[in-house]
């Protein structure tokens, strides 16, 4: 166990209709860290994020935020604790305007009082979203929708943001932009849990990393160690 972990997960398991998606995963994130969880398709990355956020029920294990047990709380109460996510597939509201999407992200009790300031902050971060704020979110390009999903997460004034494969479906150039955004958010003091298939780029960005395979953590360590690990180089980095 790390001392003073912001988010700590101990023995988390998830099963869908009898098949195990996540098997006793433990990990800790300190305040201000940027850590990544890397793994192939189907390794359990999305199950990890959805069970932390209460969207999917875990079958066993404990999730603690700031020392308080939040296991089994409904998703909206977990959001109130300051855990936001940029979900797989973005999950924006396509038939609502860009600004309505952002305001929905900022409708939690913890964020409501500062809604307009945070909105301004998001617009400064993503000029594109300000230009298109009256437009329906469904008409944005893939990259813009990803910006919107990130902006919507920021609107909740989170302590930690979990990114579920933010680079998926984006061109290499946009992928770099996206990782740049993750990095700059981290530099502004937001704790980041980055879940990715893009192992090289995620490790290059993060302080520490965990490797998820078939629902279990098989390796973890500093990103530097992992990048130099021969198994990882062979299995994920094609060296």
């Amino acid at each position: 166990m790390l001392d003073g972990a912001l988010l700590s997960i101990d023995g988390l398991s998830v099963a869908y209709d009898g098949s195990i998606a996540l098997n006793g995963v433990s990990l800790q994130i300190r305040k201000g860290e940027l850590i990544c969880v890397v793994g192939a398709n189907g390794a359990g990355k999305t199950s990890l994020i959805r069970s932390i956020s209460g969207i999917v029920r875990s079958s066993s294990g404990v999730v603690k935020m700031n020392g308080a047990n939040i296991t089994g709380l409904p998703s909206w109460e977990i959001c109130e604790r300051g855990i936001a996510q940029v979900a797989e597939g973005r999950q924006i509201f396509g038939s609502l305007s860009v600004e309505e999407n952002l305001l929905l992200g900022g409708s939690l009790k913890r964020a409501k009082a500062h809604q307009l300031e945070t909105l301004e902050f998001v617009y400064q971060l993503f000029d594109r979203l300000r230009e298109r704020r009256r437009q329906l979110a469904g008409t944005l390009s893939g990259g813009e929708q990803q910006m919107l999903a990130i902006g919507r997460a920021i609107m909740s004034k989170p302590e930690i943001v979990m990114f579920d494969e933010p680079s998926i479906g984006l061109s290499p150039a946009l992928t770099d932009v996206m990782f740049g955004v993750v990095e700059s958010l981290h530099k502004q003091g937001i704790t980041v849990l980055l879940v990715e298939q893009n192992v090289a780029k995620s490790l290059a960005l993060s302080d520490r990393g965990y490797v998820l395979e078939n629902g279990s953590i098989v390796l973890h360590g500093s990103s530097h160690e992992l990048l130099n690990n021969s198994e990882i180089q062979r299995a994920y980095l094609g060296m």
């Binding site: 956020s53 969207i55 409904p74 998703s75 909206w76 977990i78 959001c79 109130e80 996510q85 979900a87 999950q91 924006i92 509201f93 396509g94 038939s95 609502l96 309505e100 305001l103 929905l104 992200g105 409708s107 939690l108 919507r152 909740s156």
Partner: peptide, 24 residues
């Protein structure tokens, strides 16, 4: 209204609603 916005959001994307912390 803000409830109307939440209702339209829930109609549009239930999972998205859970992601932003709507009490679905």
């Amino acid at each position: 209204s803000s409830f109307g916005r939440a209702l339209r959001a829930a109609a549009d994307n239930r999972l998205g609603g859970l992601v932003v912390g709507l009490n679905i």
